[in-house]
Design a binder for these strands. Structure first.
Length: 239
DNA sequence: AACCGCTACAACCGCTTCATA
DNA sequence: GTATGAAGCGGTTGTAGCGGT
């Protein structure tokens, strides 16, 4: 281990807080074109006033095409519980067994839902075992495999998701399709979140490639209705 | 309508691990 | 073997949204 620690970035020069639509798009289009070999250098190259760590997290947890979105299925929940029993809080290890789910997402689900579920079950287990000896004990067992009584998660309808939806509505309106990625800053009017509208024209991104990628992302992220999805898939094939 | 408390989850922070010179 | 930088990881925080009063 090295002596001391160098800051991962200049904190005074990076933007923090929720990502805006234009930032997302800059990141997506940059990675699509150049990959993400060096996260530290990426923000500068992509024209983002963000820390490399922040970009990495945003990509891995939200923008990556293979991220599965939406509610966890009872099967996934059971898997998490069982894996947690085996691995403890090693979220990345658990995530590796759940394709499309991120460690951050699993951690959140555990802390907000599953942990409580375990507590309730433990409590019930304790009560039943102390009140009756005829009830079979499941000592050391977290869960009842038939249990699906966990309150279902709210759909991922966060503000961030709404931003992405707004973006797609915008993009699909052909009359207002931006001519290049350089013009994305004005999309922030959709999110009302951007307070530092910077104007750093980046490498020109081919509109065609961008559209293709974004359509693909929309499908992958499940941001479409079935009908829309069909349309987009057709469009994607045509592209 | 306004306030409050709670929940969910995106994002940040700092430590650890890994790769490499 | 050691120093260093970058990436990965897990804990924690911030805040939007929602329901209850």
């Amino acid at each position: 281990m090295g002596k001391g620690r160098t800051a991962c970035c200049d904190k005074s020069k990076v933007k923090k807080g929720p990502w805006t639509t234009s930032e997302d798009l800059k990141l997506i289009s940059f990675i699509q074109k150049h990959g993400h070999g060096n996260w530290r250098a990426l923000p500068k190259q992509a024209g983002l006033l963000r820390c490399g760590k922040s970009c990495r997290l945003r990509w891995i947890n939200y923008l990556r095409p293979d991220v599965k979105r939406g509610n966890f299925t009872p099967q996934e929940e059971d898997t998490i519980i069982n894996l947690h029993r085996a691995f403890g809080n090693r979220w990345s290890k658990i995530a590796s067994h759940l394709p499309g789910r991120t460690d951050n997402e699993i951690k959140n689900v555990w802390n907000t839902h599953l942990k409580k579920r375990i507590v309730v079950m433990k409590k019930e287990e304790y009560n039943s075992s102390s009140s009756s000896t005829s009830t079979s004990s499941h000592q050391g067992q977290y869960m009842d495999n038939n249990s699906t009584t966990l309150e279902s998660f709210s759909p991922t309808s966060s503000k961030a998701n709404d931003q992405v939806m707004d973006f797609w509505e915008y993009m699909l309106d052909t009359s207002s399709t931006p001519t290049s990625i350089n013009n994305l800053d004005h999309l922030d009017s959709y999110s009302n979140l951007d307070t530092t509208s910077e104007h750093h024209p980046q490498q020109l991104v081919d509109e065609f490639e961008c559209q293709k990628w974004l359509t693909y992302l929309e499908i992958e992220l499940g941001l479409t209705t079935n009908n829309q999805q069909e349309d987009h898939q057709n469009n994607f094939m045509q592209l």
